[in-house]
Design a binder for these strands. Structure first.
Lengths: 336, 336
DNA sequence: TTGTATGCGTTATCAA
DNA sequence: TTGATAACGCATACAA
C-alpha cells in the first residue's frame, strides 16, 4: 500500500504538493499536477482514511443504539445498516440499550465517550425520546431518525408510509372479497402502531365497511400476546375471514392459532403481516406482508450523514421510501 | 476529550504505562495500575480508535461473511459478534454472501479490497471451504473458524460440543421416561448436523434403546421441511413421545404440527430444539433447547484476533465453549 | 508556486 | 516494572 511520501518521491515533489493535488488546491502548475497524477496512477495510491481522520479530528464511525435485538425488525435493520456502512466505507458502532434502565442517559454518555462517534442513527422507539435528542444535541452529535413519530428540527427523518401500506393491504383483502377483516395492532410506544391501525380503519371506512370492536386487538408486536388475540378473534361466533397483523411475528401467531383451531389458511382465513422479516418466509404458508424498504432506509440514513458533514449544518428533511406489498400464500379469496 | 497524555500527567506516569494499563499488559505493579485507573476514571478517558488504527497499521475492522441472514442462528451470532467488537473497540464489516454464486471468489476479493480487513471470522458452512482458506491465506488475511467441521493449520477454531449437548438432551428425555424418541436433523453441509445426530444415536444406544429408522428425519434446518418431517413422524401408528430437532426453527415446526394434529405439547409430546434462538422464547410453549454460548464464542473469536496480531504468527488452537441445556415448558414426563 | 517541519493520539523499541 | 522517544500517514503553518 503506497503512502503519500512514496508518491512524492516518485513524482519528485514534496508531500505537501501531493496533498495539494489530492485535495484540489488551486495554485499549482499544470506540469507538477500532471507529474503527481502520474505517480498516483503508477502506485495506485489511495490516501489512508485513518491518517486523515486522525489529522482532521473526525471519525468515520456511525453509532446506533437499539433495544430488542431479537425482533425480526431490528435484526433486518441491523443487517441493512451494517451493509450500508460497509458500502460507504464507514464503521458501525452499536450498543444494546435497556430502555427501562433508569440510568440510560449515563449509558449513552459512556457510549459516546467510548466510541467518539459524532453521527448516530436512532431507531424506534427511542428515536422519539426528546431527552435523547437533547442529550445528543448538547454533545454535538448529529443524528438521523428512522421512522420517528414526528420530524424534529435539526435532524433528517427516514420512514415509509405505514398508513398507506396498511390501506393497501386491507384493499387487497377487500378485492379478494373479504368483509369481516380484523386487525392486531402493535406496541403503543411505536408510531407505526398507530399509523397502521389508522390505515386499517381508513380503508374499511372508504369501502363502507363498518368497524367492529371485537375485530381490533392489541398484540404489542409480540407473538405471545398475538396468540391470545387471535384465539379470541377466531372463537367469535362470527369470526373474521381475514386478519392483518401489525408485524410478521404476530401474523405467524395468527397462523399458528388457526392451525390449532382447525381453521385452514388461506382457505378459511387470510392472514397478512408487516415488515417482511425472516419469519415471513419461514412459516407455511408463506406470509403475505408489507416489505419494509430496509436496504433503502439504511442507505439513506448513512448517506444523510455525509450530507450533514458536508454542509456543516444539519438539514431536517423527511424522506419517505417506497414499500412493497408482497403477496404470498397466506391470503386468498374470501370463503363461500 | 481527554488524551492519553493528560491521563499520564494526572497519574504521574508515562504515557506508555497508561497504554499498558489500557491494554491489560501483565508486568505492571498494582499500585501504578490503580493510580492510572483512577486518572482514567477521573477524566473519563477513552482511547482514540483512530490513533490506534494508525499506529497499529491495521484496520481495526473485522470482516465476516455469511450466507443466510434470516436464520435465527446467524441472527444471534451476528448480534453477539457485533457486541464483542464494540466491547473490544473494534468494528465489524459484513458481507452477505451467496454460496451458490459461481463467482464467489471475486466477491470475496472485492470485499477485501473494499474493507481492507486483515482479520476475518468464518461461520458455517463456508468456514469449511478449503478454497476460501487458500484465498485468504494468499491475501494474508488471518481468520478464525466458528464451529468448523475440522480444525485446520494456521487458524483458531471455536466451537461447542454438539455431540455431548445432543446426548444430554436425549438423556433429559430418557429421565422423563421417554422411550420413543425421534430426531429431525439439520442440513448435511453443516457438521453440527452430523454431530447432533451422533449424540442422539449414542445416547439411545447407551440407554439400550434401539434406533428406529422412521424416527429419524432430515429437515435441513428449515422450518418448512421440518413441517413435513413432523407430520410423517406424528402420523405413525406408534408415534414418538419426544422429538429433538437440530435447531429451534424446526422444533417450532414440530410444535406447530402437533397443534394442528391435536397433539398436546408437552402432555402428549415433548419437543426440544437447539441453539436458543429468538424463536425459542417466542412460541408457546417456550422451547426446551440447548443454549449455544453465542456471546462467549463471539468474544473468543474477536479475542483471538488480538492474539494473532500480538504473537505475529497464527495459532491454531481449538476452543470448546460450554453450552447449557435450558429446560422450558415444551418438555415433560412421558405420557401414560 | 513549492518545500520543511510539526503534530494529531496511539503503540513499540529499547534502554534504564 | 517503568520511561523517553520514534513512528504510523496525513494536513497545515510557515518559510522560501
Amino acid at each position: 500500500m503506497a503512502t503519500i511520501t512514496e508518491v512524492a518521491k516518485l513524482a519528485g515533489v514534496s508531500v505537501k504538493t501531493v496533498s495539494r493535488v489530492m485535495n484540489n488546491y488551486e495554485h499549482i502548475s499544470p506540469k507538477t499536477r500532471k507529474k503527481v497524477e502520474d505517480a498516483i496512477q503508477e502506485l495506485s495510491y489511495a490516501p489512508s482514511s485513518i491518517a486523515r481522520q486522525l489529522r482532521m479530528g473526525d471519525s468515520l464511525s456511525i453509532g446506533m443504539i437499539y433495544g430488542d435485538p431479537s425482533s425480526g425488525y431490528q435484526s433486518r435493520l441491523n443487517h441493512a445498516v451494517l451493509k450500508a456502512c460497509s458500502d460507504a466505507r464507514r464503521y458501525l458502532a452499536v450498543e444494546l440499550f435497556d430502555e427501562k434502565n433508569m440510568d440510560w442517559q449515563k449509558q449513552v454518555e459512556d457510549f459516546l465517550d467510548r466510541t467518539k462517534v459524532t453521527n448516530m442513527i436512532l431507531v424506534p422507539p427511542m428515536c422519539d425520546s426528546t431527552d435523547l435528542h437533547e442529550l445528543l444535541t448538547r454533545r454535538q452529535v448529529n443524528f438521523v431518525l428512522i421512522s420517528p413519530s414526528r420530524a424534529i428540527a435539526g435532524a433528517s427523518s427516514i420512514a415509509m408510509d405505514d398508513r398507506r401500506a396498511s390501506r393497501e393491504m386491507i384493499n387487497h383483502f377487500i378485492e379478494l372479497g373479504h368483509i369481516r377483516i380484523g386487525h392486531i395492532s402493535g406496541h403503543p410506544d411505536h408510531v407505526a402502531t398507530l399509523l397502521r391501525r389508522q390505515g386499517y380503519e381508513e380503508a374499511l371506512h372508504r369501502a363502507g365497511i363498518p368497524l367492529r370492536d371485537e375485530y381490533l386487538e392489541s398484540g404489542r408486536f409480540r407473538f405471545r400476546n398475538a396468540l391470545e388475540c387471535a384465539d379470541r378473534m377466531l372463537q367469535l361466533d362470527e369470526r373474521p375471514t381475514a386478519i392483518l397483523a401489525a408485524n410478521d411475528e404476530m401474523a405467524a401467531a395468527v397462523v399458528m392459532t388457526a392451525n390449532r383451531l382447525g381453521i385452514r389458511v388461506p382457505e378459511d382465513l387470510s392472514v397478512a403481516g408487516f415488515d417482511d422479516t425472516p419469519i415471513a418466509k419461514t412459516i407455511w404458508p408463506e406470509l403475505t406482508t408489507v416489505a419494509q424498504p430496509f436496504e433503502d432506509i439504511a442507505k439513506a440514513a448513512v448517506e444523510s450523514m455525509r450530507t450533514m458533514k458536508r454542509t456543516g449544518l444539519s438539514v431536517s428533511e423527511t424522506l419517505i421510501l417506497e414499500h412493497e406489498v408482497v403477496i404470498r400464500a397466506s391470503t386468498g379469496p374470501a370463503p363461500e
